[in-house]
């Protein structure tokens, strides 16, 4: 399971998130009143997943596990 809900209601992205995970992610986000995303333990994000994150307007918490995404899409604040 690469996309799941934690006990506290945070949507967690794990390992390599493939194209079909975009739909799971979207479903979980819609099912959560004030959704949050944790992407620290993902190793690779498919474009479709990144698109859902962008469209949701949510700034995921933590250091992105996908190094390229971290460097080019979500630089850590200095």
């Amino acid at each position: 399971m690469t996309v799941r809900h934690s006990e506290t209601g945070v949507v967690i992205l794990e390992d390599a998130c493939a194209v079909e995970d975009a739909e799971s992610l979207l479903r979980l986000l819609l099912a959560t009143p004030t959704p949050a995303i944790d992407w620290t333990s993902c190793s690779h994000l498919h474009t479709a997943v990144v698109q859902v994150i962008l469209a949701s307007g949510i700034a995921p918490t933590g250091r992105c596990g996908d190094a390229w995404v971290r460097q080019w899409l979500a630089p850590e604040p200095p």
């Binding site: 994150i53 949701s56 307007g57 700034a59 995921p60 899409l73």
Partner: peptide, 8 residues
């Protein structure tokens, strides 16, 4: 950052 600054 598209993900951080204004929520993308």
């Amino acid at each position: 950052s598209p993900l951080a600054a204004d929520g993308g």
